Computed example of a mutant assay.
Amino acid sequence: MAGMIGTFDHPLFGVVKFRTKHDAWVRGDSITFIDGFDSNEITRVHVPQLKNVKNAHGGAIRFHKKAHAQLLKAFEDIERMGLLHHVRTFDGTENARLRRPTSGALSKLPSNHSFGTAIDLNAGDGSNGGTTAPIAPVFEALGFTWGAAFNDPMHFEVDEFVVNPRSVAGPLRAALPKVDFHATKQTVFNRGAPPDSFLAELVGWGRAAPDEIFAPNQLADIYSNVLGVLGPWQGLRHRRAVMLEVLRVLAGFESSWDWNAGVDTTNPTSVTPDTIEAGAWQVSANSMAFGQELKGLVLAKVGSLDGDDFQRAMKKDHPLAMEYVARLLRRTVNHHGPVKRHKIDSWLRRDAVAEFEALVS
């Protein structure tokens, strides 16, 4: 039988085996599952809030049955919060195919649409995430990841199954600031340029982060490490902007700005929950040993110091991830190889610092 054979260890379904339609790897090619996944578990669900939404088939869509409850709750809460007008078009759920990275690159991995665990909304409205940003926190609170993390803001995918979802309550992540980025869009190494959505979250955090994170200390930290590149320091606001520039460049090196990046398969020590890297800055739970304040922060935000819980939090809780890595860099430069070996230095930009400084004012 024709087709390329591939395997993938899916975080929700385990190891699956699939066959492509063509005899060579083709970007976005159709696939058929051979083993490890039962496509019959993708079933029809009626979402009342999509009844009058373009292309939504009157609200009758196909989605993995284990995620029906959280999908329905998400749209119920979106309607309850008066946000339903932001849902303009329905652009697909189930579609058995390879991934189509927005970079145009070839991927040999199956899209989450293949598993019926992803939904696209407002694909062609030209807003670059502007219309999905208001509803993204609702999806995120109910076990979904927003595709803005990998420059695909129309996309929401199930990150974990929520068996008995509760209505979203309490404060949600604030809407991303609307900003035109210029100097901060400069390329980093061979990673390309950071997505606007990533920069917006970075700026949003930078505006609200406690001053103490950026204040002078007596340690050999990130500020002493990049003093020759971005110094001298001109006050607290300048130091705040310098930290944002370091985080911008370092996230490019570590994960290509992927909030959901997982284990570094090239690192032979990444084999336990405490040593496996996670998130945009590829931090591991054992880094908490660098300071009691790091443990205190994680315990306060996560409620646990468990390695698996740490990994999930570094991917899902973006403000926590930013604060954690910033505080870690104030403690040591040894946890991140690109910092320790000064690989980030030639990619740090003074004009980007100036732009960040203006944006956090």
Rank of each mutant, 00 (worst) to 15 (best):
L236G: 02
N225R: 15
L172S: 02
D180F: 14
R237Y: 13
D180E: 13
M243A: 03
G228P: 15
T184N: 05
S167M: 12
M154P: 11
L247V: 06
Q234H: 14
T145E: 08
P232Y: 09
N164S: 11
E212R: 13
G204K: 06
P171R: 03
H182M: 11
H238K: 07
G235H: 07
S224L: 14
G192Y: 10
F150C: 03
R191M: 14
P216Y: 07
L227N: 07
N190Q: 10
P194M: 10
Q186A: 12
N190H: 11
V242P: 01
N225Q: 15
A174L: 15
M243N: 01
G231L: 15
V246H: 03
H155M: 09
D211P: 10
L227G: 05
F189T: 01
G231F: 13
E160A: 14
A215Q: 13
R240L: 06
T187I: 12
H182A: 12
Q234I: 09
A175R: 13
A193N: 05
K178P: 08
G204L: 15
L247M: 12
P194T: 04
R166L: 15
A208N: 15
N190C: 08
S197D: 09
R248A: 02
A241Q: 02
A149W: 06
P195H: 05
A169G: 08
N190D: 13
K185M: 08
P210G: 05
V162C: 04
G192N: 04
V188G: 00
L172F: 08
V168I: 05
V226L: 05
V226T: 01
L244M: 04
V188Y: 02
V229Q: 03
A220F: 13
G206L: 14
L236S: 01
A175F: 12
M243F: 07
D159A: 15
V162K: 02
F181G: 00
G170Y: 11
D221W: 09
N151L: 09
D196Q: 07
P195F: 09
F161T: 00
F189K: 07
A148K: 03
T145D: 09
E160F: 14
I213L: 08
F189W: 11
G170Q: 07
V226D: 00
L172H: 04
W233L: 11
R166F: 11
G206R: 03
V203Q: 00
V158S: 01
L176M: 05
A241W: 05
F181K: 02
A220C: 12
F181C: 02
L230M: 03
S197V: 11
G228K: 11
F144V: 01
R166G: 10
W146K: 01
A209I: 08
R240H: 02
R191T: 02
A169M: 12
D152H: 14
R173Y: 15
D196T: 08
G170F: 11
P194V: 11
R237K: 15
G147E: 05
E201N: 08
E245Y: 09
L202E: 00
M243L: 10
K185D: 04
V163F: 13
A148N: 05
L244E: 01
W146H: 02
M243T: 01
H238I: 15
Q234A: 09
N164M: 12
A148D: 06
F156W: 06
D152P: 14
G231Y: 15
R239A: 02
N217I: 10
G235K: 06
Q234E: 10
G170A: 07
V226C: 03
N151F: 09
V168T: 00
L230E: 00
